[in-house]
Each structure stands twice: as structure tokens, then as C-alpha cells.
Nucleic acid binder design. Structure first.
Length: 216
DNA sequence: ACATTAAGTGATT
DNA sequence: AATCACTTAATGT
């Protein structure tokens, strides 16, 4: 149950225009607000899914998790998005296949999955939204696959930095070379060298624990 | 002052 | 492009 007027306002602003009034009323009735902080892990592979999360503010990093701790970055979801993988879990009543981690302090709107089926039937706007977000997640997934398969690492790194900047709304990216390497499935040494090249070209500036882009 | 962690570099595969 | 082995630099205690 959403009580706080302030939260209602955020919901209306972020996703309100997508849905019909009756649905928004229902969202107020059954939704829960969850505040999370940077690096919180919202979900791991194997966890049971009870809620569909909507990002009201902030951003989450969605990745595939291997048993030995290895990770593969799939995509990011940001404000206004929901997680397609979770949706799939709802339909099939299965467990999570992915890990979700907060990239910054974020606010989530949690909808219990038991309302999914009902809302799909009753609200056209809901159907539309779910279908569309499914589509856009798959598109992003294809892009990541393309990038890994066909793009050279320097190009990928460049893209990665720009994506991060856009996502975090800042030219300063507070990641170590090691973290970047992990996201791109490369090694720290290689990333350091590529970053050094970019710095020499005047594209970026390197600090400890931080990369500063010169332009978007 | 010392230990720890991040980043830089040459050589090798 | 990755890995090794080592150096240098920055930061925390």
C-alpha cells in the first residue's frame, strides 16, 4: 500500500502517463516502495520472484551469474523501466535467472506478481507496457551480443563509458579499471592500456578510482 | 611508517 | 588481447 503522497507523486510522474486511472489506483493499493542503496543486491540467480520491480529513480545492473562467481553483464534498467526477466518468471512461476544490483541509490516500486495475470486481462495499457518493455529488453540484449561478438574491445570500452555516463547522468564514472574489465570480460591490464590511449587522445582524463569523460 | 589497493609497463604467448 | 611479473602511486590505519 502506497501511503506517502510524495511517493504517489513520483509514481504518477514516472509511470502514471502510461496507465489508465483505474490501474493507477490499484497500483497505489498493492504496490510497495523500496529504497535501495548503491551496490545493494536486489536479486540473485535462484531467488524466488515475488515482485515485479519498477525503477522510479536510479538504475540497476542486470547480469548473468555463473556458479563460480563469474558474471556477464546483460543490460541496465533505469528510471521508468521494469525487468523483463522478472516478467518471464511471473508467467512461468520460475526462479530468477539473473542478478540485479543497484548502480546508485534507487527507489523501486514493487508490485506483487499475483496481480499480473489479472491486470493483463483487464488493462490494455498494462499489456502494452509489458510487451513493449519486453521488446526493448530483448533489443538491448541483441546489442550486447553483437558487441561481444563483433566489436573490438576499444570500441566496446568507448561505448561502455558513454553508456555509463548517460545512465548516471554524469561525466565522471566512479569505477576502477578492474571493475570496468569485469563488466567487459577483459583483464585489468588491457583496460588500463586502452584507457591510457584514450587519455592520450584527449578523450578522457584518468584519476584514481575514476574516469572523467571530456564529452558525452 | 607501513600495509593495502589501484594503476602503469615491458616482455611473452 | 591476455597473462605474468614487477614498479609506481595513492590511500587508509
Amino acid at each position: 500500500m502506497i501511503e506517502s503522497e510524495q511517493h504517489k507523486k513520483i509514481i504518477r510522474k514516472k509511470i502514471g502517463f502510461l496507465f489508465e486511472e483505474k490501474l493507477i489506483e490499484e497500483i497505489y493499493k498493492v504496490g510497495k516502495i523500496k529504497d535501495i542503496s548503491l551496490d545493494d543486491i536486489i536479486m540473485r540467480t535462484g531467488d524466488e520472484v515475488f515482485y515485479i520491480p519498477f525503477i522510479l529513480s536510479g538504475a540497476l545492473k542486470i547480469s548473468r551469474e555463473k556458479s563460480d562467481g563469474e558474471e556477464l553483464l546483460l543490460y541496465y534498467i533505469e528510471s521508468g523501466d521494469t525487468c523483463a526477466m522478472t516478467l518471464q518468471c511471473c508467467v512461468r512461476k520460475s526462479k530468477s535467472e539473473i542478478k540485479a544490483k543497484a548502480m546508485e541509490d534507487s527507489i523501486l516500486l514493487m508490485i506483487p506478481i499475483k496481480y499480473m495475470a489479472d491486470w493483463m486481462e483487464r488493462f490494455a495499457s498494462w499489456r502494452q507496457y509489458i510487451l513493449e518493455s519486453y521488446h526493448s529488453r530483448i533489443t538491448e540484449l541483441m546489442e550486447t551480443v553483437d558487441a561481444i561478438a563483433f566489436m573490438r574491445l576499444d570500441k566496446r570500452l568507448d561505448m561502455y563509458l558513454k553508456d555509463q555516463a548517460k545512465l548516471l547522468g554524469s561525466l565522471e564514472i566512479n569505477h576502477t579499471h578492474m571493475q570496468i574489465a569485469e563488466d567487459l570480460h577483459s583483464s585489468r591490464v588491457v583496460i588500463s592500456r586502452l584507457l591510457k590511449q584514450m587519455e592520450a587522445k584527449g578523450l578522457i582524463e584518468l584519476k584514481r578510482n575514476r574516469v572523467v569523460l571530456k564529452t558525452y
